[in-house]
Amino acid sequence: MIKTMLKWIGDSITIVLVFIIGVSVFTMFQAKTNPQKVPSVFGFKPLKVLTGSMEPVLKPGDMVVTRETEPEEIQIGDVLTYRIEGNTLVTHRVIGIVEENGIVKFRTKGDANNTEDQELIEGKQAIGTMAFKIPGGGMIADFAKTGRGFLLFILLPIFLLIVSELRVIWLELKKVNNKKTEAPDHIKA
C-alpha cells in the first residue's frame, strides 16, 4: 500500500515537473521569436509584479496570471494588464469605462495610488484581465532564470527522473534474473 502510494506521488511529481519544463521552454521560445508579444500558455500569461501600485492585492515579486479578454468583456472592477509606451506593461484596476468617438476606453487606477491614471486605455492596448495570482511567483521565476535556479528547477528534476527510471529498469532486470536462477531443477538445462 505504501509503495503504491509513494509510486503514485512520484509519478504525479514527475508529470508536474515535465509540464513545468515544457511550459517554460514553450514560453521562452515564444519570447525569443516574438518579443513584442507577451508569452501565453492556453491563453494565460504569467507576469511578474514590479511595483507596489496594486498593494495589498498584488505585491512586488508576485506573479499575476492574466487571461486573454476581449475588450467588450472587460468590466469595472477588473484588474487589467495593458501596454503603454512600447513594451511597458501596467496592471491596474478598471474604475470606469467611457466612449470617445465611438471607441470604448478604460479609466484605470492602481489600488495603492491616490489618483487615477492620466491616460485612458483603448481595447487594443489590453493584454488581459487577472485570472489569479501566485504570491512570490515572480521571484521564483527570476531565480529559475539564474544558473543555480536552472540547476535546481530544470537539471536536478531531469537527473532525478533519469535516476528513478534507471532504478525501475534495474529492479525489473533483477527480478528476471532471480526468476531464472529459481527455476526448478527439472527445467534447468
Rank of each mutant, 00 (worst) to 15 (best):
A126R: 09
I2W: 03
M1S: 07
P46N: 14
K180M: 03
P135D: 05
V49K: 11
Q125L: 13
G136V: 05
I169E: 13
G86K: 07
G77N: 13
K188W: 11
I169F: 12
G10Y: 14
I95C: 04
I154N: 01
T66L: 09
I76H: 11
N101A: 11
A31H: 05
W8D: 13
G10S: 09
S164E: 04
T27S: 05
K109L: 05
H186Y: 14
N113Y: 03
G86H: 04
L152M: 08
I140R: 09
G61I: 00
N113L: 08
L47V: 08
V57C: 04
L160V: 05
L17A: 14
P39Y: 09
I162R: 12
Q30P: 01
I162Q: 11
P60T: 02
G43P: 03
P60F: 00
F44Y: 13
L6A: 14
G10W: 11
L161C: 08
K105V: 09
G128H: 00
I95Y: 02
A31N: 10
K188G: 02
K45W: 05
P157D: 11
P35I: 06
K188R: 14
T14R: 14
I140A: 13
E182I: 06
G123T: 10
L161V: 06
V64I: 12
T14W: 15
V168R: 09
S164C: 06
F19Q: 09
G110N: 07
Q30W: 00
